[in-house]
């Protein structure tokens, strides 16, 4: 018998002890995506600006932050933050252990996994301003900052789980 709690999605946050380099983040996300059961992924951390934002050097390009890409499934998304937290929505509670195993395989330092509500369930005023009164796909709620461009910061992955 399948109980209700087994099938309900769960939301967890991976909080590594250190910020992740882009290649470590890529490896970790690959592992998590391959293990399956992922409904939503959110990456959060301090901004990596493309140009100096203030001071006498304002506007000078920051070459180190250019061309940072995260490739996941059939999509590539520009990495614009130093990866500090990863929010995940998983199909069921059982998937948490496979995420934990992926973290243990990939991260060379300690990490915490906290189970908590990460994404809001009802549209906020900001969502209304951003998406209008009718949100076509409720899964995008809470995935990007109110000011961020969803075309740039949001990617829809197919369900191939990187097998192809």
């Amino acid at each position: 018998m399948v109980t209700k709690s087994d099938t309900e999605p769960v939301q967890i946050e991976i909080f590594p002890r250190r910020f992740l380099n882009p290649d470590t983040a890529q490896r970790l996300l690959d592992e998590i995506y391959r293990s399956g059961g992922v409904l939503r992924i959110m990456i959060q951390g301090p901004n990596l600006p493309r140009a100096v934002p203030y001071g006498p050097g304002k506007g000078l390009p920051i070459e180190e932050h250019k061309n940072l890409l995260l490739e996941l499934g059939d999509q590539a998304i520009e990495l614009r933050v130093k990866v500090g937290r990863i929010g995940l929505e998983l199909e069921s509670e059982e998937d948490i252990e496979s995420v934990r195993a992926a973290c243990e395989r990939t991260l060379p330092f300690s990490f915490d996994i906290k189970k908590r509500q990460l994404f809001h369930t009802k549209p906020t005023v900001s969502d209304y301003a951003k998406y209008g009164s009718e949100v076509e796909d409720k899964r995008i709620l809470g995935l990007v900052d109110p000011k961020a461009k969803k075309e740039r910061n949001l990617a829809m992955l197919s369900d191939s789980r990187g097998d192809s």
Partner: peptide
């Protein structure tokens, strides 16, 4: 001198303090 963010953030993988301007 500017964009000083880093004091209260976690360190990077190599143990250096985060610097937005690299």
């Amino acid at each position: 001198g500017c964009t000083v963010h880093g004091h209260s953030l976690r360190l990077a993988e190599d143990g250096t303090m985060f610097d937005m301007l690299a």
